[in-house]
Design a protein around this nucleic acid. Structure first.
Length: 570
RNA sequence: UGGGGCGUAGCCAAGCGGUAAGGCACGGGGUUUUGGACCCCGCAUGCGCAGGUUCGAAUCCUGCCGCCCCAGCCA
């Protein structure tokens, strides 16, 4: 439907590059093969969705393959809980890794062998410098480093020491294995990078089998080449690591060709940020831990889990990613674009329902006492196949409090004393009397209806500008509604260097409406489905927040509101 | 002269020597029983700046300016 053809949608530089590779036969007998390599130490967010979808779609467009590989080389930070949530999120997004679920830790044996071969080739050595000394020897951004005094140990000694590291003879931090590259390189990553460290910590997959673990820069390129990844896509901050990536892959091909399926290449692209939210793991964790939100899946969070509970759809997220595009330039996508994508999808797919979020009572004084009438309304305007439903109309109704103004400005088209308005799908009513409580708050509007104006066979010839929604008081089902809005009040909450980003939280990011009257058709809908509450916005029947007898609906996004603009102009 | 990356509209982004796509946002009009949706129209004499090459430059050259990343035994 709204999803464009893949080939038309993709016009970014990575797509172009792969297309060229394919056309000139650069892949040999290989097909395009990509991967998404999350570290299982946190929840996925909308920024990750770009990487997931990009990798997955690229593989699909070129009839290639897409792997999911957990980068689990640091047992201190990684947990099974995150493996599970990450898989759930990726699956929900629609990226299918088929039978190719891998873990970096699956290759610890073969990586150990590779390390041995590097040592034997004189290209890696065990270094006894402690962490602080390694830092000192590394030099600075502007000064070259100094070679470690252990750099020229004999191959035999290195082999012996590395073996003893593996056996657990040395404490954490006492020794590391380093690649012997160039301590004078302007690129710090090439100054004899550490490739294995000692960590006497159990691993979520390999248990106590290992007490030495490979570093990312050694592990990642090797795993890519080992899996036969043709295009290794990563974010821009790894550009500096590319020479090391190539060094590792080249050495693997030379020293251990039997386990290398492809000479993988790394390509970097910019991360994706979004306005009115934060994306850093640290800040998201703070929001959760300090209880500014109710958890990682709070519908205000930019996490995949949060967006799923808010009611976003995978299709809208994918559409958003496509429209934003991919480049190497730092970018912050506009929340308005994401909102546009979900509105566009729901406009044609979400059935309409009437709910009055902030009710005020209307009594129709000339309506026959105790009578009611069924009004037929379209579920999705313009889509006959979506059918219609019956909505009970009566002499006592709720309408939205802000659909009435006692002293309205010229451009206000809704209800006001002496003015007429159409009740959507029903009759035109006229406000005859305003009743207020002791505090002067409007408590009831007494109106008359015009029997000639029944929707569908209006013989009155009347034209009113305003159309408002309503619910019959005697036929209202009560639900809970969570009105979610932007989590922050400014576009870039992370930008304010001197002010804690917490200060920019939107105090109105969640407004709860209890006992909201909704037309009775709501009783036939299911958790997990999406609706438009007429004129108010799109809502998601939240299976998590709903309770027995009290369904909860989350506002995904409000409808565009051009009245608000008029009103604010004065 | 540490190394690397990036500057096209308010936000994204195409373009790769032939005279600035597209989307969102914004503004105007039409239409409408959702102030929604839909349909028109408008929105960079200009591509960070300054020179140069060329019949012709966002694209090539030179020099500047600005922003981002890198000194984890994190990924």
């Amino acid at each position: 439907m709204h999803a464009k053809n893949d080939n038309q949608a993709m016009t970014n530089f990575i797509y172009n590059m792969i297309k060229e590779d394919v056309e000139k036969g650069a892949l040999g007998d290989k097909c395009v093969h990509t991967r998404f390599p999350p570290e299982p130490n946190g929840y996925l967010h909308i920024g990750h969705a770009r990487a997931i979808l990009l990798n997955f779609k690229l593989a699909r467009i070129f009839n290639g393959k897409f792997n999911l590989r957990f980068d689990d080389t640091n047992p201190i930070k990684e947990e099974q809980e995150f493996v599970d949530s990450i898989m759930e999120d990726i699956r929900w997004l629609g990226a299918d890794w088929e039978d190719r679920l891998f873990f970096s830790s699956d290759y610890f044996d073969v990586k150990y062998e590779f390390a041995l071969r590097l040592i034997k080739a004189g290209r890696a050595y065990v270094c006894d410098l402690n962490q602080e000394e390694i830092r000192e020897y590394r030099g600075t951004l502007t000064e070259p480093g100094t070679e470690s005094p252990y750099r020229n140990r004999s191959i035999e000694e290195n082999l012996d020491l590395f073996e003893r590291m593996r056996k657990g003879e040395f404490p954490d931090g006492s020794r590391v294995l380093r690649a012997k590259i160039d301590m004078t390189s302007g690129n710090l990553n090439m100054r004899d990078p550490v490739i294995y460290r000692i960590l006497h910590t159990a691993h979520h997959r390999t248990g106590d089998k290992w007490c030495i673990y490979p570093m990312y820069d050694f592990d990642h390129p090797f795993s890519d080449a080992h899996e036969g990844i043709t295009h290794s896509l990563c974010s821009i901050e790894y550009t500096d690591h590319r020479p090391l990536y190539d060094w590792i892959v080249d050495n693997a091909m030379e020293l251990y060709p039997e386990v290398v399926k492809y000479r993988s290449r790394q390509t970097e692209f910019a991360r994706l940020d979004l306005t009115y939210t934060v994306m850093s793991k640290r800040k998201l964790r703070r929001l959760v831990e300090e209880k500014y939100v109710q958890g990682w899946n709070d519908p205000r969070m930019p996490t995949i889990a949060g967006m799923r509970r808010r009611g976003f759809t995978p299709a809208a997220i994918a559409d958003f990613q496509e429209r934003v595009g991919v480049s190497r330039a730092d970018s912050i996508a506009d929340l308005a674009l994401l909102e546009h994508c979900i509105r566009q999808e729901l406009e044609t797919t979400a059935p309409r329902l009437m709910a009055v979020l902030d009710p005020v009572k209307v009594v129709i004084t000339n309506w026959p006492e105790g009578e009611s009438e069924m009004m037929e309304m379209e579920n999705i305007p313009g889509d006959e196949s979506a059918g219609t439903r019956e909505v009970p109309f009566s002499g006592e109704l709720y309408i939205e409090r802000d659909d009435f103004m006692e002293d309205p400005p010229k451009k206000f088209f809704r209800l006001a004393p002496g003015r007429e308005v159409r009740l959507k799908g029903a009759y035109i009513i006229k406000c005859e009397e305003v009743i207020k409580d002791s505090q002067g708050i409007v408590s009831e509007l007494r109106c008359t209806y015009d029997p000639q104006t029944r929707s569908g066979n209006d013989t009155s010839g009347k034209k009113v500008k305003g159309v408002i929604h309503w619910v019959s008081t005697g036929y209202a089902t009560r639900v809970k509604v969570n009105l979610y809005d932007k989590l922050f009040t400014i576009e870039q909450p992370e930008e304010e260097r001197d002010i804690d980003f917490i200060n920019n939280i939107n105090p109105q990011s969640l407004v709860v409406c209890e006992n909201v009257p909704v037309e009775p058709a709501v009783e036939e809908v299911f958790p997990g489905s999406r609706f438009q509450f007429l004129r108010k916005g799109y809502f998601y029947y939240d299976p998590v927040a709903s309770e027995e007898g009290m369904p909860a609906f989350n506002r995904i996004v409000a409808l565009k509101d051009s009245w608000a603009k008029v009103k604010n102009k004065g």
